[in-house]
Amino acid sequence: MSEPILTLNNLYTDIAQYHILQGVDLQVPRGQVTMLLGRNGVGKTTTLKTIMGQWTAKSGEILYNGQEMTQMPVSARARAGIGFVPEDMGIFRDLTVEENMILGCTSGPLDPKRKDWLLGAFPALGTFWHSEAGNLSGGQKQMLSIARAMAEERQLYLIDEPTKGLAPAIVSTMAQALRELKAQGASILLVEQNFSVAKALGDTAAVMDDGRVIWNGDMAELATNSDLQERLMGLSMEAH
């Protein structure tokens, strides 16, 4: 297998006086979807934010394409090809859908072909293209947040719970778009609570507990082994 696009080595992050990440080791293989799983509060979101640079790692290293980037500013990481969809979606409410999408392109105007593809994947965005993003529904905002991260080609996408609180029909739209993204060669690190989505999309999986990755391997193996699920996450995926 080729070199992973992202490697975290023994990563520690503190938020105020709390030690949130306590030695995270993680590899995100190139061109695959990696699921980051675990109960609430074990540090999944903090891991993504530390990769993005919104929290600064206290120690450890983040290797992106083999390059150390632990001290790199947030904007430089984004320009190096990392797209980020935060848990709160980070939509600019006072801007229109179009303006949000324009801001997703740091290196030039929105490519018309890419725009067509994204509007094909998320038709609602086309309908509300000139409306203020603040007026969108929760699901539409989530689509906009993902579409904005995809507005220009990036190598690695960090996506935090994209299906949270969404209706099933929208979830499958979202999953389809992520599959297309992967088919274009992108690598994805996805935090997801919805197990059917995780099973359907994930190639590999990492399970976190207490600020560490306690298991990683093939998603298929985790999905079929309910004993393993029970042991790692204290619950069985099949129950959902």
């Binding site: 904007s75 984004a78 980020f84 801001l103």
Partner: peptide, 24 residues
């Protein structure tokens, strides 16, 4: 203008503007 968009977006949510790749 794009710079105007960045300013308006930055007023609303600066960290996200940075996460998209702009030096706020």
């Amino acid at each position: 203008t794009k710079i105007g968009l960045i300013v308006r977006a930055g007023v609303e949510n600066g960290p996200m503007v940075e996460a998209l790749g702009y030096r706020l």
